[in-house]
C-alpha cells in the first residue's frame, strides 16, 4: 500500500511537470486530487485496512496529498510567472498609431482673448458692464463731448440706420455714460466689452465689426499716474512681465489728457521687426483722463471727481499674440482657422 502511494505521487508529479498551462493544471487537479483520483481511492479504502496499517497508510496518504497540493500551487505560480514574463516580453503596441479622435470643443479666439482681459482686470477690481450695440447719436457722440459736425467726428466712420439719430455704436464708450448715470456718486471701476461697428472698406487690417474693451475708473483721487500704472500692469500680465510700455500724447474728445499706450514689441523684444514696422513698439490702446464734460454728463462733479478711461481691440491683441495676418478671419467662421485655438 505504501508502495502504491509512492507510485501515485511519482505519477502525479510527472504529470504535473508536463502540464504547461492553466487549463492543464485544472485537468491535473481533477485527475490527481479529484474525487475519483487514485489518491482519493486510497482514502476511500482506508476503512478496510487493519488497525495497525491504518495510521501508517493514513499519515502517508495525507503527506502525499499535501505534497501534491503544494506542488500544484508551486507549478501554478511558476506558470503565472512565465505567462507574465511572456506578456511583458512579447506584447508590444505601435505607440505611434493615432489615438481615437476625441471630440473637442473650443471657444472662439475673440472669446478667449476677452476672457484673458476680463481676468486681468477683475483682479484689479474692474467689473464687467455691457450696453447695447445699436445706439443713439446722443450716447455714441454728443454726451461723449463729440458734438455734431465737430472735426473729431472724422475719427469715426459710422453706420447709420434709416431711423434718424440711430446708429451702430462705433465704440463701447456709450457704456461709460450708462454706468456713470447708474453709479453716481459712487466710485466706478468697470470694463465695457462688446461689439462695435465702423463704416470701412474691409481689408486685412480693418473690419466693419470688431470687439472693443473699454475701461473706466472714477473716484476722488484718480490720477494720470494711476492710469499709467494700471495699464502697464495690464500690459505686463497680458504680454509678459518684462515688457515695457510707453505713453504718447494723443487725442480723444472724451479724455484729456489723452494718450496712446504702446507696448514694446514682444515678438522682437523691441529690436524692430515686420510686425512692429521696425519701430520696436506696438500700439495697443488709447486712454486718458475722463474729460470734465463727460464726467458732468455722467452725473459726476468734475470739481470733486477725476477718472481715467481706456479702450482696446481684443482682435488686434489676438492678432499680435498669435501672429494672425488677416483680421477677416475672425468672423468668417472658417473651421480651419477656429480649430487652431
Amino acid at each position: 500500500m505504501l508502495n502504491q502511494l509512492d507510485q501515485i505521487e511519482q505519477a502525479a508529479r510527472a504529470a504535473l511537470d508536463a502540464a504547461q498551462e492553466e487549463v492543464a493544471l485544472e485537468q491535473w487537479r481533477i485527475t490527481h486530487l479529484g474525487r475519483s483520483a487514485p489518491l482519493m481511492q486510497v482514502f476511500d479504502a482506508m476503512g478496510k485496512l487493519s488497525k495497525e496499517e491504518r495510521p501508517l497508510i493514513g499519515r502517508r496518504a495525507n503527506e502525499v496529498k499535501r505534497a501534491l497540493e503544494a506542488a500544484l500551487a508551486e507549478r501554478s505560480e511558476a506558470l503565472a510567472q512565465a505567462a507574465l514574463r511572456r506578456s511583458l516580453d512579447n506584447e508590444r503596441l505601435d505607440v505611434s498609431l493615432p489615438g481615437r479622435p476625441a471630440l473637442r470643443g473650443r471657444l472662439h479666439p475673440a472669446t478667449q482673448t476677452l476672457r484673458r482681459v476680463y481676468a486681468v482686470f477683475a483682479e484689479m477690481g474692474f467689473q464687467i458692464y455691457r450696453s447695447r450695440e445699436v445706439e443713439s447719436d446722443e450716447y455714441n457722440f454728443e454726451l461723449l463731448n463729440i458734438p455734431a459736425h465737430h472735426p473729431a467726428r472724422d475719427m469715426w466712420d459710422t453706420f447709420h440706420t434709416t431711423q434718424p439719430g440711430v446708429l451702430l455704436r462705433t465704440h463701447t464708450s456709450p457704456g461709460q455714460i450708462y454706468v456713470m448715470r447708474e453709479m453716481a456718486p459712487q466710485p466706478i471701476r468697470v470694463i465695457l466689452p462688446g461689439m462695435c461697428f465702423r463704416y470701412e472698406q474691409v481689408s486685412a487690417r480693418k473690419e466693419t465689426q470688431f470687439n472693443q474693451v473699454e475701461g473706466l475708473a472714477v473716484g476722488h483721487h484718480i490720477t494720470f499716474g494711476d492710469l499709467k500704472g494700471t495699464l502697464s500692469d495690464f500690459a505686463r500680465r497680458m504680454f509678459g512681465e518684462k515688457v515695457h510700455t510707453r505713453f504718447r500724447a494723443s487725442h480723444f474728445p472724451f479724455t484729456e489728457p489723452s494718450a496712446e499706450m504702446d507696448v514694446e514689441c514682444f515678438l522682437c523684444g523691441g529690436s524692430g521687426c515686420g510686425v512692429c514696422s521696425g519701430t520696436g513698439w506696438l500700439e495697443i490702446l488709447g486712454c486718458g483722463m475722463v474729460h470734465p464734460t463727460v464726467l458732468r454728463n455722467g452725473g459726476y462733479d468734475p470739481e470733486h471727481f477725476t477718472g481715467f478711461a481706456f479702450g482696446m481691440g481684443p482682435e488686434r491683441i489676438a492678432m499680435l499674440r498669435y501672429g494672425i495676418q488677416d483680421i477677416r478671419y475672425f468672423w468668417a467662421n472658417d473651421l480651419r482657422f477656429l480649430e487652431q485655438f
Partner: peptide, 26 residues
C-alpha cells in the same frame, strides 16, 4: 483740463511715474 494736457505733454508723459490705484474700491 486743456492746460493740464498741455503741461503733461510738454513735461513728458514718460516722466510721470506709474502708480497703483489707491482710490476707494467701488
Amino acid at each position: 483740463a486743456d492746460l493740464l494736457e498741455e503741461i503733461a505733454r510738454i513735461y513728458g508723459y514718460d516722466r510721470i511715474p506709474e502708480t497703483r490705484l489707491a482710490d476707494t474700491l467701488p
